[in-house]
Design a protein around this nucleic acid. Structure first.
Lengths: 340, 340
DNA sequence: CTGAAAGCGCTTACAG
DNA sequence: CTGAAAGCGCTTACAG
């Protein structure tokens, strides 16, 4: 192996403890001793062995971020923020892709008991609140997403119902009379689709508008495109569509445009997530932007509390902020730079 | 802490060594002993402490995947494959975002010496071959990307010159007479832009076509859009553009469409990377698809060799395969499903 | 086939 | 302010 504390101690003519003190920046080391040790440290180019330190300290310095998949833009963007936030706590982040499988989600949770990671930030898909409650005795865990609210672990999410209501109201406020909701799913009451549908329903009811919905299996461009095609095929197609995420909206946009209709003139479109793609689509996409940095920071801080403080009180439900970002897909081109 | 080998040994009435043998699946354990041990193991729900095992074994079970950023779709998609490939070697993957900073790249490389990770898969931006050679004495390292060829470490990439030639030839073969290259940069001879420009130059020269180029600072949609605007503003604009990656191409597409021109009728567009976005843009995007799974698998295997085998011979230069995927942005709609 | 013991490198009471 | 020693949990020669 490499250079150990013992090697440094030998060279500096002090004890291992003293070297450890210097390395860890403890006070109460005489200037002379410190100088000797620091000289030896640099002379030998000492690097602490993190495996040893972690064994001693009973931690790993690693946390897991478990997502269904990494490549949907929303998850990739969120991951970036989580990695940054974790670095601030001297944690490195292992990305675990669960593919939404129950078995994989269980494995990730086991990572804590295997001393593989100090804690887990999980965006659950398959695992239920009951099983979670049963298996996370001492597992530091923070939940993300819309799957489990008021569950057995800390949870951070935006206010989905309010966000959905706001987008729908924006659409209605533009004078649209047939505002559809695209992305309905047969999920539990606290699922993403259910919450966004609830917010949509509140808004259309308040405006006395009809309720139009299109269901999907997955939140992908392809499903968004197909669902939009079904909406357009109806006798009275919508003049605005609130898509439950940006990917669906981008797929829907493709369908609208390729059927010769215009966005937003014929159909206004809005999504959720504020992924980068929507800023560069033609037209650019109106969306709900969750504060991803805040989401990430909060999740990491909650995890830090659990790791440091043991059990530490009942699970916390935290709301992160969001804002409506209005772009061309609902209000038309503003000052789009017209090339040539 | 939790349950240790010693606790299991006590309960089973055997030595720690024997429990370790059973846990690690060594042969030569009598059936009776094995049964006793396994009973105790499950009774106590034993979990090996990976920190301890790693300290003893001198490894961490973690590798780093260091990329400039995670959210460009190409990197997100590639990461997913790397994580899968690494799992096959019982490695978990820490994603390190370097932001292209030299300091961050150095830190990541230090991770090996800190016993934080067993090895690093790095897509370098700032660090040069010379510095790399100087600092990677015993660091297991595999390079990705186009920045460093024939450097001091193993390297995997597709054949960029050939790929660029193939796309350009596809464009020329369609009868386009003014094929531009979008994405030129002032980078070293082995940089992405230089290699793709070389392939492009070979092809246009072979077809007796003029050489038209547009430079960019970064490979983003925004820069692609801006560079395309400059090309369209020229007296004789191109009728086809080979964009050095898909993001640039998607940006360019936005510019072409919003200036009232058609893709591919007026301007054919092609990119590189085969990111998912290009499969759902309007029109869908012709591109060079690197075999990302092969890239990832090869990188992980090379790393495994270095970690297991010590130095193990001179650096290897490996080519991963790619293929041209022809879509609407060069040949027009084929059987696009026309809704309603 | 199984056991007793050493040691990986670190941190931390406990003395002095 | 500094040192000698124990111990985190594991694996591995070395015996028997």
């Amino acid at each position: 192996m490499g250079v150990s504390l013992r090697d440094v101690a030998l060279l500096a003519g002090v004890s291992v403890k003293t070297v450890s003190n210097v390395v860890n920046g403890y006070a109460h080391v005489s200037a002379a001793t410190r100088a000797k040790v620091e000289y030896a440290l640099s002379q030998l180019d000492y690097r602490p062995n993190l495996s040893a330190r972690n064994l001693r300290l009973g931690r790993t310095g690693v946390i897991a971020l478990a997502l269904p998949e990494l490549d949907p833009p929303y998850f990739a963007e969120l991951s970036r923020f989580v990695i940054h936030a974790a670095a601030g706590h001297r944690w490195i982040v292992v990305i675990e892709q669960t593919d939404g499988s129950l078995e994989r989600e269980r494995q990730v949770l086991d990572g804590v008991r295997d001393h593989r990671v100090d804690g887990v930030i999980l965006s659950p898909v398959a695992i239920g609140a009951e099983e979670l409650a049963a298996r996370i005795d001492d597992t530091a865990l923070v939940l993300l997403g819309e799957r489990i609210y008021d569950g057995p672990a800390d949870h951070v999410a935006i206010d989905n119902v309010r966000a959905a209501r706001e987008v729908t109201e924006h659409l209605a406020g533009l004078g649209r009379r047939r505002v559809a909701a695209l992305g309905v799913q047969d999920d539990p009451a606290t699922g993403t689709a259910a919450l966004r549908l609830a917010g949509y329903a509140e808004a259309v009811a308040a405006h006395g508008l009809p309720r139009l919905t299109a269901a999907v299996e997955r939140y992908s461009r392809a499903e968004g495109a197909a669902a939009m095609a079904r909406l357009l095929a109806e006798p009275e197609p919508p003049d605005a569509v609130f898509c439950f995420n940006d990917l669906l909206a981008l797929g829907a946009m493709r369908t609208v445009l390729s059927s010769g209709l215009r966005v937003p003139e014929d159909v206004a479109l809005a999504g959720v997530d504020d992924i980068e793609d929507g800023r560069f689509s033609t037209p650019t996409l109106t969306t709900v932007a969750p504060d991803k940095a805040e989401l990430a920071r909060t999740a990491v801080e909650l995890l830090r509390r659990r790791v440091d403080g043991g059990p530490g009180g009942p699970p916390r439900e935290v709301r992160a902020s969001h804002r409506l970002v209005v772009r061309e897909s609902t209000v038309g081109p503003a000052q789009t730079p017209s090339p040539a």
